[in-house]
Design a binder for these strands. Structure first.
Lengths: 341, 341
DNA sequence: TCAAAAACTTTGCGCGCGCAAAGTTTCCAT
DNA sequence: ATGGAAACTTTGCGCGCGCAAAGTTTTTGA
């Protein structure tokens, strides 16, 4: 396999003695050419190591193997992990995923969608920013490109919405917390960046009322995606202000909880479920690091695997011609009992 | 701005009454066409909302605005954050970054590089997997495409290496720990995935010897990128085996430390620098979540911003014609004193 | 005012490849 | 052997756009 200056398929095909389209056919499916032809190509390949230009391929293909994956904030380990699993699913099925992060910026999200059109993707998996998203832009995009929304849905937009059953998450945890100790207060950002926060609050309220309790919500200021920081700073402020009427705090998500646990630590509040502890703290998501707080965080686990697998599944079913009516699939959460609550 | 079926620049230029190349010129630089021409294009644009296909552009451009960013494992918040900053730097300079993660897989890393050639990037910023990388593939790639290595270098490969001064990291922390308490043991993975681990161990050994102490290294088994998990499980095992000869543990990186702190918590060891505590724990990196352990983690901060900025800077200097001799820039770490040590 | 210079626009070709239709070879049953 | 289908290969054109050279218009200077 020597260094070579093969610039394109034409040049490569020349030194096999075959025509370019035949070689092209081989690259599309090695089995589709005669055995003798295949051997000639592969021996040439062994010496010259040519690879077709993937973007030129996709420019002309009627159906490409490209898949776009868009998440709102990739530096959030939750999305990083989910994106990773989705990428793997796509690769396993022989597709070419490309990952994009909106970095929390609606403008960037729209730009990404615009660029994605140029990629001519077979389909797109999109976790929208949520409230901040340019809804019209997303609708327009979904009308043009087969798109599955995941994590956060927009009513009747896209082929499907695959995510978690946010109210059920809250319900599950509220039920557990009420059964086992003091009633939970709900700790959240007043203007949350992540899109499921409102549904979680609603779920909390509904669950509390169902059990005959008065919801107690502590909404704190803060914008952006530095949730741990907000959980910490505003957690301290809330503790100082005696904002929590009970000794149990349900955080809107694990990252907030991670920050809040540090706040408790600093204020000398011992977190845990034993009666010797001062406060119980729970989160939601089963963030990759939720197992590593001290004490480890009790939370409701998102089914990463099911969301990834199902999203990819629905997308490829639709792409391969199956007519799919707008499907909504919200996986239930699983209570993960650790020591924090 | 009505929905339109403009498929390409030709169609678009037709309804402005101009030729396609003129419109192309406009998209390349709106100032480069006559004011009256520009007005015509922009009014047409207002009605039909056309955007050139970015991949078709890059197929033909002699110098594209594409930049490839490759990291070894994107679900690691350290790389996610570094990649995010690099992306921002590229965007600010009018380039189009595309992010790739090797997901810890050398084969995937090579595939990514091969695909990157098709993108015809102006340049690539690559944080290699390290020892696991296919060194030849990387060398060959760097010979063809202007590439800056960051985080982890390969001798004399690429335009430059921009990273951190790993030995200095260890030196800084060892010095601090020795000054303020018991001598530090070094806690690391025997076969680490992340590439700087060996240099950190070497730095630890050198620093200890410089200060006249005997290095004490605890190397634990474990593969892959679930460092917290390894730090936790193997941390417990090491504590049980009384592997640490002193009450101070310097972890090879923050993620390991996060796991190890949980191990301490479970074993009832109070982590902290006061004499009332049982053990001091320190890390390296200033991982995004290092501030949120309990107690917050004392560590050596990588200069994310400098690494991102400098990498992008060197790359674009080289891309814009400046001849750059292989530059190595290793930023010093900054001691971040928190409460864990 | 008018020719030369500058600024701008258009023509024609190429990038690397997919695709359909046309041409060729191979295979098999008769 | 032979005709015809099946399998395979080639021809010709198109994708959406950049680029250089050629053509056109506008600006400049004496």
């Amino acid at each position: 396999m020597q260094k070579s200056k093969i610039r394109n398929m034409q040049e490569f095909s020349a030194l096999t003695g075959l025509s370019r389209p035949t070689v092209s056919k081989y690259f599309h499916d090695p089995e589709s050419v005669r055995q003798s032809t295949r051997a000639r190509i592969e021996s040439a390949l062994a010496e010259h190591d040519f690879r077709p230009n993937i973007y030129a391929i996709n420019q002309n293909r009627s159906l490409t193997k490209n898949v776009g994956i868009v998440v709102p904030y990739l530096a959030d380990p939750f999305f990083a992990e989910l994106a990773r699993q989705i990428e793997q699913c796509c690769l396993e099925r022989g597709y070419r995923p490309t990952l994009f992060s909106a970095h929390g910026d609606p403008k960037l999200e729209t730009d990404i969608l615009d660029n994605l059109r140029s990629l001519k993707p077979a389909g797109v998996l999109l976790a929208p920013l949520g409230r901040a998203s340019d809804r019209k832009a997303i609708e327009a995009f979904c009308a043009d490109v087969p798109t599955v929304l995941f994590d956060s849905g927009i009513e009747d937009v896209g082929l499907a919405f695959i995510g978690s059953d946010s109210p059920q998450f809250a319900d599950l945890m509220v039920d557990y917390l009420c059964r086992t100790g003091e009633l939970p207060c709900f700790f959240e950002m007043k203007t949350p960046s992540n899109p499921n926060a409102n549904r979680r609050r609603a779920g909390y309220i509904a669950a509390m009322e169902r059990l005959g309790h008065v919801p107690r919500i502590v909404s704190v200021p803060g914008t952006g995606w530095a949730f741990e920081d907000i959980g910490w700073r505003e957690g301290i402020a809330a503790i100082d202000a005696r904002a929590f009427e009970t000794g149990t705090v349900l955080c809107s998500n694990d990252r907030l909880a991670i920050g809040f646990i540090r706040a408790c630590f600093e204020k000398g509040l011992k977190v845990g479920r034993e009666s010797s502890h001062d406060i119980r703290v729970a989160g939601m998501d089963d963030h990759p690091l939720a197992r590593f707080t001290c004490p480890p965080l009790t939370t409701v686990a998102q089914d990463y695997d099911a969301i990834a697998r199902q999203s990819v599944d629905v997308l490829f079913r639709a792409v391969s011609g199956e007519t799919v009516s707008h499907e909504v699939r919200q996986f239930e959460g699983r209570l993960v009992l650790r020591d924090s609550a």
